[in-house]
Write a protein that binds this DNA or RNA. Structure first.
Lengths: 201, 201, 201, 201
DNA sequence: TCCTAAGCGAGACGGTACGTCTTGTCTTCCA
DNA sequence: TGGAAGACAAGACGTACCGTCTCGCTTAGGA
């Protein structure tokens, strides 16, 4: 078994922490490898012993952050009974790591990253929500998963950028109302120019 | 009045076209100023006579693309009666410029860009939709606008990445159903773990 | 015709001078490109606009130094009558550039360089001396040329390393006596163990 | 007395052999410590347990090669009667180790090395030749020793680089003729521009 | 129609970051 | 204790872009 040198653990933690701190300070694009290693008190060459480039460090580092989130969710099978809403978990996690999320979701994070997070959430939606929905669904699963993930991230972005004016519970409820009940329930009408004829072909 | 040299028009058009072509070929980040000017048969220094950097050229260039879209929408005031759904217009525009949208929305576009587009759409939503909604709305306007814009972009992304398996009309209807009628209308239930108690404070 | 930017001339001169100064200070191997450009007040990248690496700068720079020497020799054809001894010219040139020669010939210069100089001199010997020697020569021309060049450099090395205890004239005469008259003329004997039987085959 | 671990002997031999093989393959400068230890199947750190750097290993290794040569010469005192020409011994040794000499003398060897070998030979010349020469000598001893050593190395270089077209005996004779009898004996003249007036001061 | 200010091509230059390579030191384990 | 393995700091390498800056050429549009 590959026994990992304890120094490696330490070095990687230093790099991860330095990267996170620097992203929050100046945005992902503006951070250089030199900055990271300076902050971590490591040689620049050492960086390359562990990661191919900035991107790889970021991805590996985020994995550990999101692994935390996934752990709080528990196994998909029993999620709906035991562990409360996974949506709530996302808002809570975002609240606890608000600095990080703020950077990732809007402004300075790389677009690749945003897409990756959305895909990640969409995947979780598929695993957790769909098993408890009726078999018959009028839309393709991945369309739906993508839509729900995108909506969730939009709300989260707005929430963080406006300094979290509501509680995580309230945001969860808002999300539920918007996605499950629909706007019509609240505004009373479907505006006329939204009513279009189904394409006849 | 300072009459603008025709060469300036020409040069800027060449730069814009070169940038667009190159983004489609290799993604925004991978494009360099040198690439752009090579493609446009211009000197690199010439680029800087017109734009501060790649970003500025991109933004200015996209403006012209989206101005096109806005023109098809017509003035907000009469939108709901005359010009059909603005949502449909977005899907149609995305279809007509699918290569461009694909790059912008997923993968290689800069995150800043994505945010800017979302904000742009959110703004249009505010201008066009809200005047025809009831005055009383249970959510903050910008939350709603952001949510609707995010949902629209999510659907558009999914659509383009899956090679547009539906018509623009169908996507518009899907969007309407999801956002206005809500998921509950289709799946019949609001899953139990989504029902949470409003925070009492 | 390629009109060379005057800045280029200036930049190359700065680089050459910086290299020479630094070689004298710390030896060729210890000089880095960064050192050179720092000394020359130029950006490091600028170096690479002009030379592939340190070696190329050195070679190109030495060419200009030795071109100077060759100019004082004049054309080979008339060398023996008009311009005095080319050997003397070498000693004089070495004296005038003693710092440089000291570095090149012993110690810190690269071996490649030493070989190149010897080859250069050997070539000049062929061009200048052989035309005025009798046609019949008992040794191959390049053996002889190499021998004479090597001897000359050996003497020059010794001379410089011992702080030039003789004049350039005296060194020239010494060289002439050793190579043309031979040791036997001065020590009277050919030591017994040097007398070997010609190989009969 | 500290009995030297047999493993140490073995390790050093491996390092020496690896270095020699690699120098022949790619030249001294291009060889790295990593290359050496890879070839020797040793850890890189092990190298530094035994030698300060590449240079030290080289010098120590060459000592053993040249110790061989010195052994064939026997003690200086009786050299002239018993052991044949030391010059011949050099040519023979060079022939037997021609690959090594080729690298050391021309092209890729370090200049420091070349100088060291020349100094080594000059020293032997002083010890072996001068005792059998007349007391009165018109040139400083070290000038002479250096000259003879330089000439010998020049000839050896030429010989090896031209694939040894003559026997070691013939080279020895050539050397004797050139250095002891002088060129004048063969070409008949001392060219006019070599005749210079002694400097009167 | 000329002339003059401008646009432009060409490319040198100072910078900054990159990812790679080598060196020499150190520490931890194994035989 | 000698050696293997390899983490690490240091720092040079050559490359790639960036944005700025001249320098001349050419050319459009006002005199």
């Amino acid at each position: 078994m590959a026994k990992v040198d304890r120094r490696i653990i330490r070095t990687r933690a230093l790099l991860r922490d330095a990267l996170m701190a620097l992203i929050l300070e100046k945005g992902y694009d503006a951070v250089t490898v030199q900055h990271i290693t300076d902050r971590a008190n490591l040689g620049r060459a050492t960086f390359y012993l562990h990661y191919k480039d900035k991107e790889e460090l970021l991805v590996k580092s985020l994995e550990s952050v999101f692994d935390e989130l996934v752990e709080t969710l528990g196994p998909p099978a029993v999620a709906n009974e035991l562990s409360g809403s996974p949506v709530l978990a996302v808002f809570v996690h975002a609240q606890e790591n608000s600095d990080l999320y703020r950077v990732l979701l809007s402004g300075e994070g790389s677009a690749k990253l945003y897409g990756r997070i959305q895909a990640y959430i969409a995947n979780e939606v598929m695993n957790r929500l769909f098993p408890i929905l009726p078999k018959e669904r009028p839309f393709p699963d991945d369309l739906l998963a993508n839509y729900l993930a995108g909506s969730l991230l939009s709300l989260t972005s707005w929430w963080l950028e406006n300094d979290m004016p509501y509680s995580a519970d309230q945001m969860t409820e808002t999300y539920r109302q918007l996605t499950f009940l629909g706007l019509a329930n609240f505004v009373g009408i479907s505006p006329s120019n939204m009513v279009i004829q189904p394409k006849n072909e």
